[in-house]
Amino acid sequence: MLLYTLRRIAALAPIVIVVVFITFILGYFGPIDPVRAILGEEWEDEQRYAETQRALGLDRPFMIQFLDYVGSLFGGNWGQSLSAYAGVASDRAANQGRVGGAFFGTSTGVRQMIFSRLAISAQLGLWALLFLVIFGILLGVLAAVKQNTIIDYIIVTGSIIASSIPAYVIGPILLIVFVLKVPVFKSVGGWDGMFSRQAILPALILGSGPLLVVVRQTRAGIVEVLGKDFVRTARAKGMPERLVIARHMLRTAMIPVLTSLGLITSGLLLGSLFVEQIFNIPGIGKLAIQSLMSGDHPVIMGVVLLQALLIITVNLLTDLLYGALDPRVTYD
């Protein structure tokens, strides 16, 4: 088991390196010249330009810059936001286009910025995950048990609808309904902590995205075990039906669900570009959009990198957890 884990990690190392490399390339060839972004109007002054370039280390060859980037990543330094240099970047954002706005927070270290935002996104994601796990699995089980009845049909079709409609369509519609028509919520937008009412709508919308996957897989898993001999044995022992489902069917049926739930979790924890945009939640998705629009490359690189690393880690964990859930799986 330990050996297997180590081997898996070793196999992942090259992928991680390539991921870092690609992220770096994206930043390196990014549309906005950081020096120009910092200097603003003064960039035509060649001497100032060269000075700043040297100060940022951007005059060095590509490979050296890359190695430097990797090196500082290992040291926990993910770089500095361009906003560190006098907020020029956000001015530029205002000229650039649709999304603008000032930066939140005071720190300009990319890692600090990302992780302070991550906390907010993760709280939101946790609610969404809770909703997803409870309702997704419950509905999936119900659909399976009521297989090929109208209930099954309604659940599956309903989940297709819930998962198909993008957050930036359903979000505004729910806002209009629950703020204008049936005023349940007075103020919307922003973030008041995990236990405020404001978290409800965004969490529901975030969670409904992957609902279909969970419902489908749970349903398929349960349908598969429904007629199995061991389920009959559990019933013959006189186990109440809910325990038959919970103890004997779900665990076997859940194993495939787990695979997708891993990826879903990583997605949810990082929040959503769209939900955070619509509800104006200062999470990591909002940060990504802001820095994308303002050309703050170090930040967007950090976000992309974090997400990629998280996805890779979650995949590994899913694999290992798979073995823990299914006693038949052995690692060798």
Binding site: K228, D229, F230, V231, R232, T233, A234, A236, K237, R247, H248, R251, T252, L325, D326, P327, R328
Partner: peptide
């Protein structure tokens, strides 16, 4: 109580 014909499949694999 009932004892089943197929011991290979009649018990839950994940418990």
């Amino acid at each position: 109580a009932m004892i089943f014909q197929e011991p290979m499949t009649a018990l839950t694999p994940t418990m």
